[in-house]
Protein backbone atom coordinates (compact mmCIF):
# COMPACT_ATOMS: atom_id res chain seq x y z
CA UNK A 1 0.00 0.00 0.00
CA UNK A 2 1.19 3.55 -0.71
CA UNK A 3 2.54 5.22 2.41
CA UNK A 4 0.41 8.08 3.75
CA UNK A 5 1.46 11.61 2.95
CA UNK A 6 3.05 13.16 6.01
CA UNK A 7 3.40 16.67 7.29
CA UNK A 8 5.61 18.79 5.11
CA UNK A 9 7.98 20.23 7.67
CA UNK A 10 8.74 17.38 10.05
CA UNK A 11 11.36 19.32 11.98
CA UNK A 12 8.82 21.68 13.52
CA UNK A 13 5.45 19.98 13.53
CA UNK A 14 3.79 22.79 15.51
CA UNK A 15 4.42 25.63 13.06
CA UNK A 16 1.65 26.47 10.56
CA UNK A 17 2.39 27.36 6.96
CA UNK A 18 0.51 30.33 5.41
CA UNK A 19 -2.00 29.46 2.66
CA UNK A 20 -3.98 32.01 0.68
CA UNK A 21 -7.74 31.74 0.15
CA UNK A 22 -8.42 31.51 -3.59
CA UNK A 23 -12.15 31.08 -3.38
CA UNK A 24 -14.88 30.76 -0.79
CA UNK A 25 -18.27 29.14 -1.33
CA UNK A 26 -21.14 29.36 1.09
CA UNK A 27 -22.62 25.85 1.02
CA UNK A 28 -25.28 26.21 3.71
CA UNK A 29 -26.34 28.86 6.18
CA UNK A 30 -23.61 27.72 8.59
CA UNK A 31 -21.21 25.84 6.30
CA UNK A 32 -18.67 27.12 3.80
CA UNK A 33 -15.86 25.78 1.65
CA UNK A 34 -12.46 27.38 1.11
CA UNK A 35 -9.99 26.67 -1.67
CA UNK A 36 -6.48 27.32 -0.45
CA UNK A 37 -3.19 27.70 -2.23
CA UNK A 38 0.19 27.81 -0.62
CA UNK A 39 1.83 31.22 -0.73
CA UNK A 40 4.52 31.54 -3.41
CA UNK A 41 7.21 28.96 -3.68
CA UNK A 42 5.54 26.14 -1.82
CA UNK A 43 5.20 22.59 -3.02
CA UNK A 44 1.87 20.97 -4.01
CA UNK A 45 -0.12 19.56 -1.13
CA UNK A 46 -0.52 15.79 -1.35
CA UNK A 47 -2.98 14.02 0.93
CA UNK A 48 -4.97 10.82 1.17
CA UNK A 49 -8.78 10.80 1.44
CA UNK A 50 -9.80 11.00 5.11
CA UNK A 51 -6.76 12.93 6.31
CA UNK A 52 -7.10 16.29 8.03
CA UNK A 53 -5.22 19.52 8.64
CA UNK A 54 -4.94 21.87 11.58
CA UNK A 55 -6.22 25.23 10.30
CA UNK A 56 -5.03 28.35 12.08
CA UNK A 57 -6.95 31.60 12.19
CA UNK A 58 -4.52 34.40 12.99
CA UNK A 59 -4.66 35.25 16.68
CA UNK A 60 -7.86 33.27 17.29
CA UNK A 61 -6.93 29.61 17.34
CA UNK A 62 -6.43 26.36 15.51
CA UNK A 63 -8.89 23.56 14.75
CA UNK A 64 -8.78 20.13 13.08
CA UNK A 65 -10.63 20.11 9.74
CA UNK A 66 -10.76 17.27 7.24
CA UNK A 67 -9.67 17.80 3.68
CA UNK A 68 -12.73 17.78 1.42
CA UNK A 69 -11.14 18.28 -2.00
CA UNK A 70 -9.93 16.09 -4.79
CA UNK A 71 -6.77 14.09 -3.97
CA UNK A 72 -5.87 14.18 -7.69
CA UNK A 73 -5.56 17.96 -7.58
CA UNK A 74 -2.69 18.69 -5.18
CA UNK A 75 -2.53 22.31 -6.32
CA UNK A 76 -5.73 23.26 -4.51
CA UNK A 77 -6.35 22.43 -0.87
CA UNK A 78 -10.07 22.34 -0.09
CA UNK A 79 -11.76 22.44 3.31
CA UNK A 80 -15.44 22.49 4.16
CA UNK A 81 -16.15 24.05 7.52
CA UNK A 82 -19.22 24.34 9.69
CA UNK A 83 -19.16 27.50 11.79
CA UNK A 84 -19.97 26.39 15.31
CA UNK A 85 -17.69 28.34 17.65
CA UNK A 86 -14.95 30.91 18.10
CA UNK A 87 -12.44 29.69 15.53
CA UNK A 88 -14.75 28.37 12.85
CA UNK A 89 -16.96 31.48 13.03
CA UNK A 90 -13.94 33.71 12.58
CA UNK A 91 -12.98 31.60 9.57
CA UNK A 92 -16.45 32.05 8.11
CA UNK A 93 -15.73 35.76 7.84
CA UNK A 94 -12.58 35.25 5.75
CA UNK A 95 -12.60 36.56 2.17
CA UNK A 96 -10.67 35.65 -0.94
CA UNK A 97 -7.07 36.80 -0.61
CA UNK A 98 -6.93 36.32 3.15
CA UNK A 99 -4.40 33.94 4.65
CA UNK A 100 -4.89 30.93 6.91
CA UNK A 101 -2.26 28.79 8.60
CA UNK A 102 -2.11 25.11 7.68
CA UNK A 103 -0.39 22.20 9.41
CA UNK A 104 -0.73 18.74 7.98
CA UNK A 105 -1.80 16.46 6.51
CA UNK A 106 -2.36 14.30 9.57
CA UNK A 107 -3.89 10.99 10.42
CA UNK A 108 -5.02 7.79 8.78
CA UNK A 109 -7.02 7.51 5.56
CA UNK A 110 -10.05 5.76 4.13
CA UNK A 111 -8.74 2.47 2.70
CA UNK A 112 -9.70 3.34 -0.88
CA UNK A 113 -6.87 1.33 -2.42
CA UNK A 114 -7.16 -1.69 -0.16
CA UNK A 115 -10.85 -2.15 -0.97
CA UNK A 116 -10.51 -2.18 -4.75
CA UNK A 117 -12.57 -5.00 -6.18
CA UNK A 118 -15.34 -4.77 -3.62
CA UNK A 119 -18.65 -2.96 -3.36
CA UNK A 120 -18.34 0.31 -1.47
CA UNK A 121 -21.00 1.77 0.79
CA UNK A 122 -20.39 5.31 2.05
CA UNK A 123 -22.64 6.60 4.81
CA UNK A 124 -22.48 10.23 5.95
CA UNK A 125 -24.36 12.42 8.36
CA UNK A 126 -24.35 16.24 8.25
CA UNK A 127 -20.95 17.82 7.63
CA UNK A 128 -19.57 14.25 7.76
CA UNK A 129 -20.00 14.17 4.00
CA UNK A 130 -17.01 16.52 3.65
CA UNK A 131 -14.35 14.05 4.91
CA UNK A 132 -15.84 11.35 2.65
CA UNK A 133 -15.87 13.49 -0.51
CA UNK A 134 -12.18 12.87 -1.36
CA UNK A 135 -12.90 9.12 -1.19
CA UNK A 136 -15.85 9.60 -3.55
CA UNK A 137 -13.63 11.56 -5.97
CA UNK A 138 -11.00 8.86 -5.83
CA UNK A 139 -13.44 6.03 -6.44
CA UNK A 140 -15.20 7.85 -9.30
CA UNK A 141 -11.86 8.61 -10.92
CA UNK A 142 -11.00 4.90 -10.76
CA UNK A 143 -14.56 3.64 -11.12
CA UNK A 144 -13.69 0.43 -12.99
CA UNK A 145 -11.69 -0.86 -10.03
CA UNK A 146 -14.71 -1.07 -7.73
CA UNK A 147 -17.96 -3.00 -7.61
CA UNK A 148 -21.16 -1.22 -6.72
CA UNK A 149 -20.91 2.28 -5.29
CA UNK A 150 -23.57 3.34 -2.79
CA UNK A 151 -23.66 6.80 -1.19
CA UNK A 152 -26.18 7.29 1.63
CA UNK A 153 -26.54 10.67 3.21
CA UNK A 154 -28.59 12.11 6.05
CA UNK A 155 -29.08 15.81 6.81
CA UNK A 156 -31.20 17.59 9.38
CA UNK A 157 -33.50 19.37 6.93
CA UNK A 158 -33.58 19.78 3.13
CA UNK A 159 -31.84 23.13 3.62
CA UNK A 160 -28.92 21.35 5.34
CA UNK A 161 -28.04 19.06 2.44
CA UNK A 162 -24.35 19.63 1.78
CA UNK A 163 -22.91 19.42 -1.76
CA UNK A 164 -26.45 19.11 -3.14
CA UNK A 165 -25.50 19.75 -6.76
CA UNK A 166 -22.77 17.14 -6.60
CA UNK A 167 -25.05 14.60 -4.96
CA UNK A 168 -27.47 15.15 -7.84
CA UNK A 169 -24.67 14.78 -10.37
CA UNK A 170 -23.41 11.53 -8.79
CA UNK A 171 -26.98 10.32 -8.55
CA UNK A 172 -27.45 10.78 -12.28
CA UNK A 173 -24.59 8.39 -13.04
CA UNK A 174 -25.67 4.89 -13.96
CA UNK A 175 -22.82 3.35 -11.99
CA UNK A 176 -23.53 5.07 -8.66
CA UNK A 177 -26.44 4.78 -6.25
CA UNK A 178 -27.17 7.87 -4.17
CA UNK A 179 -29.92 8.24 -1.60
CA UNK A 180 -30.57 11.13 0.75
CA UNK A 181 -32.80 11.46 3.78
CA UNK A 182 -33.66 14.32 6.13
CA UNK A 183 -34.64 14.23 9.80
CA UNK A 184 -37.32 16.85 9.34
CA UNK A 185 -38.95 17.72 6.02
CA UNK A 186 -40.15 21.13 5.02
CA UNK A 187 -42.51 22.03 2.18
CA UNK A 188 -41.38 20.96 -1.25
CA UNK A 189 -39.31 17.97 -0.08
CA UNK A 190 -40.41 14.78 -1.76
CA UNK A 191 -37.49 12.63 -0.67
CA UNK A 192 -36.94 10.33 2.31
CA UNK A 193 -37.67 11.43 5.85
CA UNK A 194 -36.04 9.64 8.77
CA UNK A 195 -32.65 8.57 10.00
CA UNK A 196 -29.94 7.56 7.55
CA UNK A 197 -29.76 4.05 9.03
CA UNK A 198 -33.14 3.34 7.41
CA UNK A 199 -31.45 3.67 4.01
CA UNK A 200 -28.95 0.87 4.71
CA UNK A 201 -29.55 -1.92 2.24
CA UNK A 202 -30.75 0.38 -0.54
CA UNK A 203 -28.75 0.28 -3.71
CA UNK A 204 -27.84 -3.31 -2.97
CA UNK A 205 -24.43 -4.71 -2.09
CA UNK A 206 -22.79 -8.04 -1.49
CA UNK A 207 -22.28 -8.18 2.30
CA UNK A 208 -19.34 -10.57 2.00
CA UNK A 209 -17.57 -8.30 -0.40
CA UNK A 210 -18.47 -4.81 0.78
CA UNK A 211 -16.40 -2.07 2.36
CA UNK A 212 -18.33 0.48 4.38
CA UNK A 213 -17.00 3.92 5.34
CA UNK A 214 -18.95 6.01 7.81
CA UNK A 215 -18.59 9.59 9.00
CA UNK A 216 -21.04 11.40 11.22
CA UNK A 217 -22.04 11.84 14.86
CA UNK A 218 -21.18 8.84 17.07
CA UNK A 219 -24.79 7.87 17.65
CA UNK A 220 -25.45 7.87 13.91
CA UNK A 221 -22.34 5.75 13.36
CA UNK A 222 -23.37 3.29 16.06
CA UNK A 223 -26.79 2.67 14.51
CA UNK A 224 -25.34 2.55 11.01
CA UNK A 225 -22.87 -0.15 12.08
CA UNK A 226 -25.72 -2.09 13.68
CA UNK A 227 -27.74 -1.90 10.45
CA UNK A 228 -24.73 -3.00 8.39
CA UNK A 229 -24.06 -5.88 10.79
CA UNK A 230 -27.71 -6.91 10.49
CA UNK A 231 -27.21 -7.15 6.73
CA UNK A 232 -24.14 -9.30 7.15
CA UNK A 233 -21.31 -6.76 6.82
CA UNK A 234 -18.68 -7.68 9.41
CA UNK A 235 -16.81 -5.14 11.50
CA UNK A 236 -13.44 -5.60 9.81
CA UNK A 237 -15.08 -4.34 6.61
CA UNK A 238 -16.36 -1.19 8.28
CA UNK A 239 -14.32 1.99 8.72
CA UNK A 240 -15.36 4.98 10.81
CA UNK A 241 -13.88 8.44 11.29
CA UNK A 242 -13.70 9.49 14.95
CA UNK A 243 -13.82 12.99 16.32
CA UNK A 244 -12.02 14.10 19.47
CA UNK A 245 -10.66 17.37 20.83
CA UNK A 246 -7.26 18.02 19.27
CA UNK A 247 -4.60 20.54 20.17
CA UNK A 248 -1.48 19.23 18.47
CA UNK A 249 -2.38 16.53 15.92
CA UNK A 250 1.00 14.84 16.42
CA UNK A 251 0.48 12.73 19.53
CA UNK A 252 1.90 15.11 22.15
CA UNK A 253 -0.99 16.99 23.75
CA UNK A 254 -3.03 13.95 24.83
CA UNK A 255 -6.40 15.56 24.12
CA UNK A 256 -7.54 13.15 21.43
CA UNK A 257 -6.94 9.97 23.44
CA UNK A 258 -9.49 7.24 22.97
CA UNK A 259 -8.37 4.39 25.21
CA UNK A 260 -4.93 3.40 23.97
CA UNK A 261 -5.39 5.20 20.64
CA UNK A 262 -4.45 8.71 19.69
CA UNK A 263 -7.19 9.73 17.28
CA UNK A 264 -4.89 12.29 15.63
CA UNK A 265 -2.22 9.74 14.79
CA UNK A 266 -3.77 6.28 14.88
CA UNK A 267 -7.03 7.68 13.44
CA UNK A 268 -9.18 9.53 12.67
CA UNK A 269 -10.16 6.65 10.37
CA UNK A 270 -10.29 3.34 12.23
CA UNK A 271 -11.18 -0.14 11.11
CA UNK A 272 -14.15 -0.72 13.35
CA UNK A 273 -13.22 -4.15 14.72
CA UNK A 274 -10.06 -2.57 16.16
CA UNK A 275 -11.96 -0.08 18.33
CA UNK A 276 -15.23 -1.93 18.73
CA UNK A 277 -14.89 -2.60 22.46
CA UNK A 278 -13.89 0.96 23.31
CA UNK A 279 -16.54 2.45 21.05
CA UNK A 280 -19.25 1.07 23.30
CA UNK A 281 -17.73 2.25 26.60
CA UNK A 282 -19.54 5.40 27.72
CA UNK A 283 -17.48 8.59 28.07
CA UNK A 284 -14.17 6.91 27.29
Amino acid sequence: MTPLPAIADAAEPMVPIPFRIERTVKNLSDTFTVDLRPEEGRKPFHFAPGQFNMLYQFGVGEVPISISGDPQDPETLVHTIRAVGAVTQAMAGMKRGAVMGVRGPFGSAWPVEAVEGSDVVLVAGGVGLAPLRPAIYHILANRARYGRLVILYGARTPRDILFRAELEKWSSRLDTFVDVTVDRASGGWHGNVGVVTKLIGRGGFDPDNTAAMICGPETMMRFTIQALNDRGVSNERIHVSMERNMKCAVGFCGHCQFGGQFVCRDGPVFRFDRIEEMFLVREL
Partner: peptide
Protein backbone atom coordinates in the same frame (compact mmCIF):
# COMPACT_ATOMS: atom_id res chain seq x y z
CA UNK B 1 1.74 13.18 32.70
CA UNK B 2 2.43 15.01 29.47
CA UNK B 3 -0.83 16.60 28.39
CA UNK B 4 -0.87 20.19 27.25
CA UNK B 5 -3.21 22.69 25.72
CA UNK B 6 -2.39 25.66 23.52
CA UNK B 7 -3.36 29.27 23.97
CA UNK B 8 -3.34 31.84 21.21
CA UNK B 9 -2.79 35.41 22.24
CA UNK B 10 -2.43 38.69 20.34
Amino acid sequence: CFCTTVEDVT
